[in-house]
Nucleic acid binder design. Structure first.
Length: 813
RNA sequence: GCGAACGUGGCGGAAUUGGUAUACGCGCGAGACUUAGGAUCUCGUGGGGAAACCCGUCCGGGUUCGAGUCCCGGCGUUCGCACCA
């Protein structure tokens, strides 16, 4: 670290943090702002480890943007909060033998300290935690709104169950079929769970993604959402099997003539009726085996397919032929109808299955040069591949056309109909856990599932010392008799509370609505506040939430819009995904021991240096590589600026005239930094500032006007530092209330330009000419160059390419 | 397997519409000031060559006066999704 500039970050940063707090610099006037700008970043889960660099990188990037927008004259509202419910907290609490209700406030206090020390422009008076009763009361209210609209319903669903820990596991906690914590094999359990009908909104959720007037999002995020929604077009086809009718969904109705067997998911409701007595035992055994598998390995494609025949047959409506019915766990109950028509000739999975169990494989599509009889060595699955064969009247039609033709026939003959299918499934919000908002439902023997009346909210999560889940599969809340047994709100007879809590994703699906209205206790979000501040102007966050969090937030917003409570249906006007930080080329992880503790860096280098380094180490939207050795660069840079500021406050600092080169660089930098900040190109914005500083030092320029504006451009990155410099340079008020410097477009143009001289495209020299020199002048200057004359000697110039202001290229032969 | 992004010095990374490749920073080398320096300042820093020049943006082709950038074919890395019919 440097000795001679007396810049001591600790003092400067403490001073300005105190000043901001005292003068309420970071608060926005939520009721009167004329140019509201809602700058949102993804609120963190307050872990016991504290903020990691990844958080800090993301928050700094978003903070830089918010500060920049404020300096441009926007009224920026930049809130922060904590996503503190969930399995993660609960597991950690169990591990350290504490109660989450005790642990979380500690963690939040630590996070708050860290977020303050990084110098974020947070509107702390609107801080929220999803675990506060004043917050989750409204999460429960939200559930009731969905319930009222018929968008919340109960059905049986499978969960991963660890028999040792006696708890439900998320899919990510199951590693290779075993519990990530104790290693015992995970089982599947079927429980009644609450679901939200997000699938009703699939079409809108998809369509809006392409509507630029509603949402301007990172391309990668839009794509991830589209893939998740997974729209496909095909047909539902009904196969008759004795008294039963089996519906299947297919994207390839054109291959109907090639359907040589049907496959149902093992848990399909018709399995029982379709099993012949001879096959009963085998079918039962197979179902039991499939049911015992954990959800993860059931779904992760195992190469070897298995299944059993049920003994009965169905009629292929196109050929009239009877085809056997099988069950196999490669068919999933959750997708489509839970049953497929198997076309082994044109589907890879069906091909594998048919090969293994010696089922007939029929070719119904032929490519150029193939005939109806050409044997298939593998499935030919490409729709665009060719024309139909072995398909009666559809022979010779291109497959794509046949798809429409067969669908029309299905509809006219009553065997099926065209169908748009989404991959998206309904959102299961039940968690058989303790640490979450209780789902506000009361069960009554007479009235069924009764919603808790809104005026009785909140359903407070009771303090239970032993919050560990037990073997019963019901939440520990059921053991708290006083809480559990309540009268039915409808009839008054004894009832029981729902003991599941809701998914953490529900907490975070509406937090952005709460922030501006966080002080209202009688409403989740105030209409006037909401009208002024929403939808969110800018949202910056990680792509790990590209799908679930962002999709759920959009869904909830749409539901509230449809209920007439919000005027908009898309919550985030712009969304930008930031990149990931790695350390010395490798992902950071506890096991590798390369996790960075930001506190150490902040106390050693100062928050401003650390922020500047984080923003400089790579493109914000791509992330970058954290290296200890790199931090000294930004620190030296701040020291140099500090020195310039010291010089610019001396009585004789004024330059009689600012040199032209400096003038141009100065105005170019103002323009460039503003443009780069707008695009979140922070690393290049900082590089531009470094260039300006280098130029000022080379030219011995200490002109206060220039230095003051330099400090302004730097302010979003190094806020405490900039405030201090601003004060020393006699700026009034906070630097963040001073307007962003403007540039003079006539001054960003240099008076002379460098022309590249080429022969056959190879650079042979350069020459500086006046910017407005005409072609003849430029050519004459270029022809004087040694490198050019040497290469033109004895050659015939066939052509001269002249690009004004750039180059002259002689094409010779 | 499918989808997407990317591949540039010793390292992190820059390069408007195709127009001086390597900005900015780290590191490294030499020098200055110093009792000292892991501080600071100055100069240098892609490879080869005395020079003229030649070679250089993962590899191989192509388009063009000119390609890091565009097209085709490989190889590699990373990130999503993953038996979705």
């Amino acid at each position: 670290m440097t000795d001679h500039p007396d810049y001591t970050p600790t003092e400067v940063e403490a001073k300005w943090r105190a000043r901001w707090h005292a003068e309420r610099t970071n608060e926005a006037d939520l009721d009167h702002a004329s140019r509201p700008f809602y700058n949102l970043m993804m609120f963190p889960y307050p872990s016991a480890e504290g903020l990691h660099v990844g958080n800090l990188f993301a928050f700094t990037g978003a903070d830089v943007f918010g500060r920049f927008k404020r300096m441009q004259g926007w009224n920026v509202f930049q809130p922060m909060g904590f996503d503190a419910f969930g399995i993660h907290s609960e597991n950690f609490a169990m591990k350290v033998g504490m109660h989450p209700a005790e642990l979380i406030p500690r963690n939040i206090a630590n996070f708050t300290r860290q977020l303050t020390s990084m110098g974020g422009m947070f509107a702390w008076e609107h801080v929220l935690s999803t675990t506060d009763v004043s917050y989750y009361k409204w999460t429960q209210w939200l559930f009731l709104q969905l319930f009222k609209q018929g968008l919340a319903y109960k059905k049986k669903g499978s969960v991963n169950w660890c028999p040792t820990d006696k708890t439900v596991l998320a899919n990510e906690q199951v590693i290779g079929g075993a519990c990530e914590r104790c290693g015992s094999m995970v089982e599947q359990r079927v429980l009644e769970q609450w679901y939200f009908r997000i699938t009703d909104y699939a079409g809108r959720l998809l369509a809006n993604l392409d509507d630029k007037s509603l949402m301007d999002w990172s391309e990668s995020t839009v794509l991830a959402q589209k893939n998740w929604l997974g729209r496909s077009e095909g047909a539902t086809i009904r196969f008759v099997a004795g008294k039963e009718s089996i519906a299947v969904y297919t994207t390839r109705p054109d291959t109907l003539f090639g359907a040589t067997f049907l496959v149902l998911a093992p848990e399909h409701p018709l399995v029982e009726q379709l099993t012949t007595p001879a096959e009963r035992a085998a079918a039962e055994a197979y179902r039991a085996q499939a049911a015992a598998k954990d959800l993860v390995s059931r779904k992760v494609g195992e190469k070897e397919k298995t299944g059993v025949a049920l003994g009965s047959t169905a009629i292929n409506p196109a050929t009239g032929a009877p085809i056997p019915i099988w069950i196999a766990d490669y068919v999933l109950m959750e997708y489509g109808t839970g049953a497929i028509m198997a076309v082994p000739g044109h589907d890879e999975r069906d091909f594998d299955f048919a090969t293994k169990y010696r089922l007939p494989i029929v070719r119904v599509v032929a490519r150029e040069g193939e005939s109806a009889d050409t044997p298939l060595a593998e499935a030919l699955a490409d729709v665009d591949a060719g024309r139909l064969v072995n398909s009666g009247e559809y022979d010779n039609l291109p497959a794509l056309e046949a798809k429409r033709a067969v669908t029309r026939w299905l509809e006219s003959s009553g065997h099926g109909e065209g169908k748009v299918q989404f991959r998206l499934y309904d959102w299961c919000i039940s968690r058989q856990r303790y640490w979450g908002p209780p789902i506000p439902i009361i069960y009554c023997d007479d009235c069924g599932a009764v919603p808790v009346p809104e005026e009785q909210l909140p359903v407070v999560l009771p303090q239970i010392d032993d919050f560990r889940p037990d073997d019963s599969g019901v939440s520990p809340l059921a053991r708290h008799a006083e809480w559990y047994f309540v009268p039915c709100p409808t009839c008054g007879k004894p009832g029981r509370r729902e003991t599941d809590v809701s998914d953490t994703f529900l907490d975070s699906a509406w937090y952005f609505l709460r922030y501006p209205s966080s002080e209202f206790t009688d409403r989740p979000f105030d209409p006037a506040r909401t009208a002024r501040w929403l939808p969110v102007t800018s949202y910056i966050g990680g792509n790990e939430h590209a799908v679930l969090h962002l999709l759920y937030s959009r869904f909830i917003t749409m539901v509230l819009h449809d209920a007439g409570m919000l005027s908009f249906e898309e919550p985030f006007r712009t969304f930008r995904a930031h990149g990931l930080i790695v350390k010395d080329g490798a992902k950071m992880s506890k096991s590798k021991g390369n996790v960075i503790n930001p506190d150490e860096y902040i106390s050693k280098w100062g928050a401003d240096t650390f922020r500047t380094y984080l923003m400089f180490l790579g493109p914000f939207q791509e992330g970058g590589d954290f290296r200890d050795s790199g931090i000294s660069g930004p620190r030296r840079f701040l020291d140099k600026v500090w020195e310039l500021v010291s010089q610019a406050t001396h009585p004789d600092c004024r330059d009689a005239e600012i040199r032209h080169e400096v003038l141009v660089k100065w105005h170019q930098t103002k323009k460039r930094v503003a443009e780069e900040l707008e695009l979140l190109h922070y690393n290049t914005a900082i590089a531009a500032l470094m260039e300006l500083v280098n130029a000022l030092r080379e030219q011995n320029c200490t002109e206060p006007t220039v230095v003051r504006e330099l400090v302004q451009l730097l302010a979003p990155f190094a806020p405490h530092f900039a405030e201090e410099c601003w004060e020393r340079l006699a700026g009034t008020g906070s630097i963040f209330d001073a307007r962003w410097p403007t540039w003079d477009p006539t001054l960003i143009i240099e008076s002379s330009v460098t022309i590249v001289a080429q022969v056959n495209g190879k650079t042979r020299g350069t020459v500086a000419v006046a910017r407005d020199a005409d072609e003849a002048t430029v050519r004459a200057a270029v022809e004087q160059l040694d490198g050019i004359t040497r290469h033109l000697e004895g050659m015939t110039v066939r052509k001269v390419i002249y690009v004004p202001g750039r180059l002259v290229n002689f094409v010779v032969g």
